[in-house]
């Protein structure tokens, strides 16, 4: 399938000097969030498949981008009112991925030009869509910057320059760390091959991140049958309370 896709890509861009395509491998196509989930590391490796010998003039660079499910956000800003810090204004960001990691084979700006970045929406700020802030909010860009800053600090947005190893202009590999506080969904994985800032080929696949087992069951129950879930929580609490009391009495008697 990947081979076929690569071939389709190769055929789709016959004008390029050397039609190059990606043959990709992933260490795991599925990430399972289990009860003891503590983050995960995904190994992404692949080879460049080409019809003609590689051009010697420009080196081949590789970008790997993994993007988590997007959702609209409300970003709030605090300000000092009457001596305490209160949320004053809010901006809605239309789409921001819950996770976004980029790995490149060289410094980001050397690998891809700004126009190509705009076209493929590769860099972090380009992956966030914000249509507009309410009129009364000043410098709305700072809200989007705050989203990037906060998520960078918690490891949810990563830019790893030079993290992709390219061997003989053909083989590439990189590792991307998925943090423990991951949300579930389809993680879009994109690979770009570039030469002197231009994208010569791209490839897309999906990594499936899902809660499984107990996590899946509890989460679904809490959303689909909230009353049953609430009653179950209470039953467990009361049973535990009774058990503790009973155990204590046995302990006292002995």
């Amino acid at each position: 399938m990947t081979r076929l896709l690569a071939l389709v890509f190769a055929l789709a861009f016959p004008v390029l000097a050397a039609a190059e395509g990606v043959v990709l491998g992933l260490s795991q196509k599925q990430v399972r969030i289990t009860t003891n989930f503590d983050g995960s590391e995904i190994l992404i490796f692949g080879a460049v498949k080409r019809e003609a010998p590689a051009p010697d003039s420009e080196t081949l660079e590789v970008i790997v981008a993994i993007e988590g499910p997007s959702s609209p956000l409300t970003v709030r800003r605090k300000e000092r009112k009457l001596g305490i810090w209160v949320n004053v204004d809010a901006v809605e960001v239309d789409e921001a991925p819950a996770f976004y990691a980029i790995a490149t084979s060289a410094p980001f700006r050397d690998v891809i030009s700004d126009t190509e970045d705009l076209r493929y929406r590769v860099s972090v700020p380009r992956a966030i869509r914000s249509v507009g802030a309410p009129m009364n909010v000043q410098n709305a860009e700072s809200f989007v910057e705050a989203v990037i800053r906060i998520r960078q600090e918690s490891g949810l947005y990563q830019l790893n320059e030079g993290a992709v190893e390219v061997t003989d202009q053909t083989l590439f590999r990189t590792q991307i760390a998925l943090p423990a506080n991951l949300t579930e969904g389809d993680y879009k994985t994109r690979i770009f091959l570039t030469r002197s800032g231009k994208v010569v080929s791209d490839f897309e696949t999906v990594i499936d991140v899902r809660k499984v087992g107990l996590e899946r069951f509890l989460f679904n129950l809490s959303r689909q049958q909230p009353l049953v879930y609430g009653l179950m929580s209470l039953a467990i609490a009361i049973a535990a309370g009774w058990l503790a009391s009973a155990a204590f009495r046995v302990f006292l008697r002995s």
């Binding site: 409300t74 800003r77 605090k78 000092r80 810090w85 949320n87 705050a146």
Partner: peptide
């Protein structure tokens, strides 16, 4: 003054 003035919440 909090170190981060901005906070993210769901819509």
């Amino acid at each position: 003054q909090p170190s981060e003035l901005f906070s993210i919440g769901a819509v």
